[in-house]
Design a protein around this nucleic acid. Structure first.
Lengths: 166, 166
DNA sequence: GTAACTGGTTCTAAAATAGGACTAGACAAG
DNA sequence: CTTGTCTAGTCCTATTTTAGAACCAGTTAC
């Protein structure tokens, strides 16, 4: 009973999770953003078992999120660095970080914070701007299935999104 | 050897993944954004086993991402709707979606697309704006550990982030 | 009333994980 | 160049999680 693969599904969210949605990948990527490069650095930071870390790093290299590079000239150890594809996960980590800051910490709990180097201040809120410049939320969008290419103004199939008030 | 918990870690990314970083949660949330509410809708859409779906829904209700509501007046079936905490995951799904659109599809592969209801056009790119209004990338930020509260201009501890060119 | 559907629970087998023991090659000191 | 330590893994076992199917009680449809 192999874990079901989402690699060939048409929903991009599912494909993303198929590649980096496992328990450890995004934490490894977060550490890579934080400057870590060596096997032992990741292992120490995450407290992950070596077997799992080996498998995860191999997978991330295989899907071109990380790349190996010789650590000095020829022959010695190697390190893992983010590729462009890996660096492009930055906004994913930022969105997760901001969500957790809002919802997963008690008022008095300490947390690490993402800072802007230039200003020395906290990074501003991530926001999705619509065509008119105003902020978009989920109720102002819908998903067009790949099959509906000729029907670009189709409303959300299931009707109005119903949500809880709080 | 229980899966290691990240619930009490100080890094918000880790806490977020502790709550919703498992194999199915974000897909359930994606479907909820897409208007799904009933157990059977989720089960059909995801092709997930009922036992797992039951566990995942219970967990999402327990952490207040979803909420149950009676489907008609008293006694009948119930449905699952997003709470505010759940709706606030919108940008997480958008960032994952845009990343996968860029990196996980062949040129000719069909994909579903997130559309803006007002304009009928595709939702614009998500962008993180710095204090000066310019777009921020990972190299222009650093993580301030909770312990360094009094040291807000500390540079990234591990030095310059090294990445692969491509 | 009966048939089908909904929303589960329970079972088994397979896969993934944690944690530790072990090891080949790199590197450092003398 | 010899010894000792470090690095980056591999391999093993016990436990946990997952997939998939069977089963079941209450609800709705006919």
């Amino acid at each position: 009973m192999k874990r079901t693969s989402l690699g060939r599904v048409e929903c991009p969210v599912a494909r993303a999770l198929d590649e980096i949605g496992d328990w450890w990948s995004l934490l490894i990527i977060r550490d890579a953003f934080d400057g870590m490069r060596r096997f032992s650095e990741f292992q120490k930071s995450l407290g992950i078992s070596k077997g799992i870390l080996t498998a995860r790093l191999k997978h991330l290299v295989a899907i071109d999120v990380l790349q190996t590079a010789p650590i000095s000239d020829e022959g010695g150890y190697q390190e893992y660095v983010l590729t462009k594809k890996g660096r492009d996960l930055f906004l994913v980590t930022v969105s997760l970080r901001q969500w957790a800051e809002d919802h997963c910490f008690g008022k008095t709990e300490r947390r690490s914070t993402l800072m802007e180097t230039a200003s020395g201040k906290r990074v501003p809120r991530l926001a999705l701007q619509g065509r008119d410049g105003k902020e978009l939320d989920s109720s102002m969008t819908f998903v067009r299935k790949a099959a509906d290419l000729d029907d670009s103004r189709a409303p959300r199939k299931a009707g109005v999104l119903r949500t809880a008030e709080r």
